[in-house]
């Protein structure tokens, strides 16, 4: 069968070879490619040459052939929300800008933004679609602006940046308060008691504060500390309140709960360590170390509103 096939494929009747002979008699059949195939091949070569001119291609000296292709994209100003049409030569960055512009000017996104802008906080929280949108956009905003200090998930760093996921808020955890914090910024302050109180008094106050959250048992020392705390000697109650639960208007900490934002008491093992750490903190106070910048000049009010809702849902304070 194979002999017949080979023969009949050649209309002339004789088998055509490529014309070479190796080792005297070794020859190769000529099975030519179809001509259209050849022309398609030439076509691809022509295409590749045109491609060089349209897209960035060859390096030339310290520059390169930049190509005639361009990309049109839209830039949205973060502050004013103004859209501006731009054009730049084709490269992958232009394509990225095109995608970013398309996302920022997406009609569905714009409609949703307008809806969130118009709604008040209670409406947003009750609307699953709006909350989905806020969490999605807010995650990006938070990542760009807040995560550097507060961490990707808002968990903060004990001693440096507050944890935004718990329910303990120095300046108030309602959305309106968070919005205010974002707009104006905050500056935490506590005077240094080192120069005011004697070391023994500092020990006593520290002991008393530890008893407030059951980190230490009441003792004579804590009783002395209470007098200093609640009296004119220390005057701690001015800011922390007589019940030591803090005053959001002052940004003073609630000393009776389990959360320690600055001194990581739960991480310390022995009562001595806890007391010593707290004493050091009380004598040094807080001055210019806990500052939240104001965002009203950096972000649009809509972005701040989105962030306020986003941060609030991290903590979920009712």
């Amino acid at each position: 069968m194979s002999d017949k096939t080979a023969n009949t494929q050649q209309s002339s009747g004789t088998v055509q070879t490529t014309g070479h002979a190796w080792d005297g008699d070794l020859q190769e059949y000529n099975n030519p490619l179809p001509r259209w195939w050849l022309w398609c091949f030439y076509g691809t070569i022509v295409f590749s040459i045109l491609y060089w001119f349209v897209y960035p291609s060859w390096p030339v000296g310290d520059t390169w052939i930049k190509g005639t292709g361009t990309v049109d994209y839209t830039v949205v100003d973060k502050g004013t929300g103004k859209e501006q049409a731009k054009e730049y030569r084709w490269n992958t960055r232009s394509l990225l800008l095109e995608d970013l512009g398309a996302a920022a000017t997406d009609p569905q996104r714009k409609a949703m933004l307008a809806k969130v802008e118009a709604a008040d906080y209670d409406q947003i929280v009750k609307d699953p679609k709006m909350m989905e949108f806020v969490r999605s956009v807010g995650k990006g905003l938070f990542g760009d602006n807040c995560a550097a200090c507060h961490g990707r998930g808002g968990q903060g760093v004990v001693g440096l940046y507050p944890n935004l996921t718990d329910d303990d808020w120095l300046w108030g955890g309602k959305m309106a308060k968070i919005n205010e914090t974002l707009m104006q910024g905050r500056k935490g302050f506590m005077p240094a008691f080192g120069p005011v109180l004697k070391p023994e008094q500092l020990d006593d106050v520290a002991e008393y504060v530890l008893t407030l959250s059951n980190e230490a048992q009441p003792s004579e020392a804590s009783a002395r500390g209470k007098e200093i705390f609640q009296g004119q000697v220390g005057g701690c109650y001015y800011c922390h309140g007589a019940d030591a639960k803090g005053l959001p208007s002052q940004g003073s900490a609630n000393l009776t709960d389990k959360i320690w934002a600055i001194v990581n008491i739960p991480a310390l093992k022995t009562p001595q360590e806890k007391q010593a750490a707290l004493k050091t903190f009380i004598s040094n106070g807080v001055n210019n170390t806990r500052v939240m910048p104001a965002w009203k000049d950096r972000l649009s009010s809509t972005d701040i509103k989105l962030l306020a809702v986003y941060v609030h849902q991290l903590s979920g304070v009712k």
């Binding site: 209309s11 055509q16 070879t17 490529t18 070479h20 000529n30 030519p32 490619l33 001509r35 195939w37």
Partner: peptide
């Protein structure tokens, strides 16, 4: 070889 120069590309027979 005495054969005519072989064609490397085949013209299609309709």
């Amino acid at each position: 070889m005495s054969e005519p120069t072989p064609s490397l590309y085949q013209k299609r027979i309709q």
